[in-house]
Amino acid sequence: MAEVLVLVDHVDGAPKKVSYELLTLARTLGEPSAVVLGKGASAAAEKVGAYGAEKVYVCEAEELSSYLVGPHASVLAKLVQEKSPAAVLLPSNATGKEIGARLAVKTGGGLLTDAVGVTPELVAEQQIFGGAVTVQSKVQTGTPIITVRPNSTPPTEQAGAGTVEQVTAEFSDADKASRLVEAVVEAKGGRPDLGEASIVVSGGRGMGNAENFSIVEKLADTLGAAVGASRAATDAGWYPHQNQVGQTGRTVSPQLYIAVGISGAIQHRAGMQTSKTIVAINKDPEAPIFELADFGLVGDLFNVVPQLTEEIEKRKG
């Protein structure tokens, strides 16, 4: 069985959930090999065997931490050349897509982004136009390079050999063109990552001000959810821009999406329409968000949301 390379997304050695999802998916396509790059890679390498990785390629070269995406694509390109994998899977986030793009040019392979599933024949399923059309796409030349959205495959454990192999790489000047000077963390910690969370609670202009976002945060915390925001709310400075959901924010596809005081403009829908279950709370019965809600509550969020939070607490016992 041919290898399937999976780029592991991790923060200082802690793999993100999407990495386990991709390894689970890779097991249905071939023999999964994890590729772990950058600072803390060795620590992450110990964890991926539990999700079926037979081989774990590790590279901790300093360049991977000090330059943007170029070096990562180079290490992967080297592995593609040496191992002739059936496919390369990457997480479909900004960095994963960019590494995939550069890898495709380097290897002459085709690129598919935002897959929500991949068949054993390496046909990728994508949802386009805000979920209105489902397409099946296939790479026709070279090694298929496929970025897969978080929450596409439920991760399940399965022991793999997890044999670690160190990879050395040489980096060209072009790989070292964009220098990472500093990484600034602005997000409030403690909540799950927006892209990976299985529940997202988002607030919009209806929140009225920044302070009121604590109402949404309280609900999110009782549900173990991430907090999102509409552009109206991020533009007003009520919530950080990296929490924006929509066409020009993050695309989320959780089990449950709760929209609070959000009208449901098409650009907002583009980022949340593929959520499994959608709940909307809005005082305007005509708000377009109700057109796609599985459950819509017409009412004032300042009454409804605190009561909902309390009810959930109560039922949790």
């Binding site: 495709a104 002459g108 392979g109 085709g110 690129l111 598919l112 046909v123 949802q127 979920g131 209105a132 059309v133 489902t134 397409v135 099946q136 796409s137 296939k138 790479v139 026709q140 030349t141 070279g142 329409q273 959608i278 019965p285 109700f290 057109e291 796609l292 809600a293 599985d294 459950f295 819509g296 509550l297 017409v298 009412g299 004032d300 009454n303 409804v304």
Partner: peptide, 21 residues
């Protein structure tokens, strides 16, 4: 290098239950 082999138009999402507070 990549091509769409098949596609289907999904029926638009159906509105569910709407309840007044």
């Amino acid at each position: 290098p990549s091509q769409v082999v098949e596609f289907s138009n999904k029926p638009p999402r159906q509105a569910g239950q709407i309840v007044k507070d």
